[in-house]
């Protein structure tokens, strides 16, 4: 057993946990969190792809993971803004605004 197998399995497991919960959880907010978890799982796969036992990791996958993190935070921000806007829209709908 090596760190590679441990964290490789962790990555795949995180991805599966995230994927499952992104599909079944009842609230949009939690689905967004679940997608973030799944994306961390994918990040693990790339990080172990870069890892070398003796040190001197491959910098390219690291750059890819950083890009992936930034892309996902952007998408998350938009999704959360939609959640807030929907909340506001529903609140105004229940009020007696014309």
């Amino acid at each position: 057993m090596t760190p590679e197998t441990i964290y490789g399995a962790t990555g795949i497991a995180l991805f599966a946990i995230g994927l499952y919960h992104a599909l079944v959880l009842p609230s949009a907010l939690r689905r967004i969190v679940a997608l973030n978890v799944a994306s961390v799982g994918a990040g693990f796969v790339m990080v172990i792809a870069a890892w070398r036992p003796g040190g001197g990791a491959d910098p390219v996958p690291h750059a890819l993971v950083i890009t992936g993190i930034v892309v996902l935070v952007a998408a998350t921000a938009v999704a959360l803004a939609l959640v807030r806007a929907l909340h506001d829209a529903d609140t105004t709908e229940t009020d007696d605004t014309p």
């Binding site: 994927l19 997608l35 994306s39 790339m46 996902l72």
Partner: peptide, 22 residues
Amino acid sequence: LNYLLAGMLGGVLILLGIGLLF
């Protein structure tokens, strides 16, 4: 919101595939 969540899920799946390929 549904559109974005579907797109994010698709993107995460593609990202995993890319990780495995690399």
